[in-house]
Design a protein around this nucleic acid. Structure first.
Lengths: 202, 202
DNA sequence: TTCCTTGCTGACCGGTTGGTCATTAATTAT
DNA sequence: ATAATTAATGACCAACCGGTCAGCAAGGAA
């Protein structure tokens, strides 16, 4: 009984290579990552990588597009259902979501786009449209609905949904830059939400 | 009258090269920047760059260290003078400072450190100690002093001076990632400060 | 004017790595 | 079994770029 030296797995190879590339890019950054290392991590030869992805840049694009926001979509569903009061939504699902972001793949994508985005405006646009704009729009609608319901006052928050994201962004950058310096990111999110709530509640 | 092909300017060359390197790094990132392009931008030959900086990495370090926080020191001086009330300080010098950061060289440094920081832990530490920690400590003392004076309540802000920086960080990242998408960063800072003020005022 | 010091140049080298392709072998069809 | 197909390999190439260095010329000294 001899085991074959490799198995043909046309279906799974691409996603495995993308996953390996994500890990390598996250560790060393795009430029410093060698295609051969990606291949090695995926348990594959360098040549095979080039069978599924024309260039290293192609692979980069695949990595970015692969990390999509399923969690964001789930959150938007919750807010659109209008079951919860504004306050309950913020203290519940919204807070949970915000707490989870720093540990998700999103920070890595931000990091990669910051480093390489200049040469990939289409990728930046893709991310802006599918993640950032979508999220901001949902928050905007949420705040407006709260006002319509008589739960919230009209404040600067109506035009600046970024106020909700500010601590999330800080938490992401902090973790990326200073992974060893502890920062209670959960408490940060909670404090920001409490402040906003106190500010906008009627 | 023949003009010499070059002039000897031992004194000025280093800072000119560092300035050119900063510009190139900001445009293309560290890895994608060729030393030859830096030299060209500084109006100098590649060889000369290596006369003043042993390696490309050395040049990188010089660039990072060169961008120091004089403005931050000035701000800290103001807060330490204790002339202004807590509220007046926040609405005046603090707000001005926050508004200026996104247009300063700091975002570029953040960008570079995010991309290359992993391989330069000493530079990250340098920046943390000299900019981040210093700033946070100053804010922490400021809030504590407000409490001692009876101006502020004790809140989560006492332990989380990062709440002041959150919109600044978001503004920086936004500008770096989406330079063409307008965001009223001034209004963002103002709103955050108003919220914090309303939250902590006695 | 001549000589000396040294800031500065630019041709060159060698290691690294993105990308290719002839070959091999796992799988399927006959 | 055997042939046909194609997933997968890995040796190889060529360009690119960080870093070197022998020599040139600017500026000062005598």
């Amino acid at each position: 009984m001899k085991t074959p030296r490799y198995r043909r797995r046309k279906e799974d190879r691409p996603k495995e290579i993308v996953a390996a590339a994500f890990a390598e890019f996250a560790e060393h950054g795009y430029a410093a990552t060698k295609v051969e290392d990606v291949a090695a991590r995926a348990g594959v030869s360098k040549g095979l990588t080039y069978l599924y992805f024309k260039t290293k840049e192609d692979l980069f694009r695949a990595v970015i597009r692969n990390v999509v926001g399923e969690r964001l979509d789930a959150l938007i569903d919750v807010v659109e259902q209008e079951q919860l009061s504004g306050e309950a939504f913020l203290r519940g699902p919204m807070l949970d979501f915000m707490k989870r972001v720093p540990d998700s793949p999103i920070p890595v994508v931000i990091q990669l786009l910051l480093a390489e985005g200049g040469r990939h405006p289409d990728l930046v646009k893709y991310y802006f449209d599918n993640i950032v704009a979508k999220g901001l729009q949902a928050i905007r609608r949420f705040v407006a609905r709260g006002v319509a319901r008589g739960e919230f006052r009209v404040t600067a928050v109506n035009e600046l949904p970024q106020l909700f994201l500010a601590p999330v962004v800080l938490a992401m950058i902090w973790r990326l830059l200073f992974p060893e310096r502890t920062l209670d990111t959960d408490k940060l999110m909670e404090a920001q939400l409490e402040m906003i709530l106190a500010w906008i509640k009627v």
